[in-house]
């Protein structure tokens, strides 16, 4: 789309006709891209109120009648209420802790000069690279040793460790760019180190923190591999495992999968809408520079 807008703007003296064309073209491209991103999701939404039998007959038909009961079946009969609560508990807990711990570490690494700074940074960061499929078994052993296997607390800890390197990496990069003058001034005003972190770094770093929050939340909300291996108790399952239950060995219950996905994703979208508004407003209002 920028290509078209470039066309429109490159020559300000151009006749209105090409500009109109460029405008139309831009709208067309933006419209097409929107269909491309939103289309599959809306398609999935229609499937969530259709039965699998209906879907198999025609994948693109409009729901008729609307099978709202699929949501009830998922929520009540298939225990999604429990899964939802478990997911919320684990993911919100993990995201809160990892953001705080990660931000503290990122701040120390970005701000202070001390021996081993870059080494610690490299060590923390490098763990982002290890394929989780391979550390899975050692991790499992550790959780068993500490009696955290098959517990939501254990899963939360694993999730914290999973997202920690990414959080440190993103935040360190941003914190390092906060002008040093701010800190010098704060010091002179008598702020302690912890206060500086709380009253300067966290508020100013909000855009970056919000970004990591969003990313961590989404990745953990959808996490599957660790959830399936570390939790076997049906009462402790999380949403992705709940959805998985509809993907049978022989028979994929597409309608129920779609309903399950809607239950898991709609709250996230609403949270994102709310959050991103705040985020953008925060960024435009209190911009650092």
């Amino acid at each position: 789309m920028a290509f078209f807008s470039m066309l429109g703007a490159r020559d300000p003296g151009a006749t209105p006709l090409p500009r109109l064309f460029a405008r139309g073209g831009l709208a067309l491209v933006i419209g097409a891209y929107t269909i491309y991103t939103l289309g599959p999701f809306l398609w999935l939404a229609t499937m969530s109120v259709r039965t699998t039998g209906e879907i198999s007959l025609d994948h693109y038909a409009w729901p008729s009648p609307f099978h709202w009961e699929q949501f009830r079946i998922a929520w009540v009969d298939s225990n999604f209420a429990t899964y939802f609560w478990n997911s919320t508990l684990v993911v919100v807990g993990a995201v809160a802790v990892v953001t705080l711990v990660g931000a503290a570490a990122a701040h120390a690494l970005a701000r202070y000069r001390f021996k081993g700074n870059r080494l610690i940074y490299a060590v923390l960061f490098s763990s982002i690279i290890f394929p989780p499929q391979i550390t899975l078994i050692s991790l499992y052993q550790i959780l068993v040793d500490y009696n955290l296997y098959n517990s939501l607390l254990g899963l939360t800890l694993v999730y914290i460790s999973l997202q920690l390197p990414l959080t440190v990496y993103l935040l360190e990069g941003f914190f390092a760019r906060i002008p040093q003058d701010l800190f010098d001034a704060a010091k002179m005003d008598g702020y302690g180190d912890i206060e500086i972190f709380r009253r300067i770094v966290l508020p100013i770093g909000m855009p970056a923190i919000a970004t990591t929050l969003i990313l961590n939340f989404i990745q953990l909300w959808n996490e599957f591999l660790f959830a399936v291996v570390l939790i076997t108790d049906p009462d402790k399952r999380t949403l992705p495992i709940g959805i998985r239950a509809f993907m049978g060995d022989h028979f994929q219950d597409i309608g129920m999968i779609a309903a399950g996905v809607m239950i898991s994703v709609v709250p996230v979208i609403l949270a994102y809408i709310f959050f991103s508004e705040k985020l953008i407003r925060g960024m435009t209002a209190g911009a650092v520079k």
């Binding site: 503290a104 570490a105 060590v123 763990s127 290890f130 550390t135 550790i142 460790s161």
Partner: peptide, 17 residues
């Protein structure tokens, strides 16, 4: 600032790695 992150790292990332 650093110990919580490092503790998590050592316990749940470094050891398995």
């Amino acid at each position: 600032f650093l110990v919580p992150a490092l503790a998590i790292y050592v316990g749940l990332t470094a050891y398995p790695a």
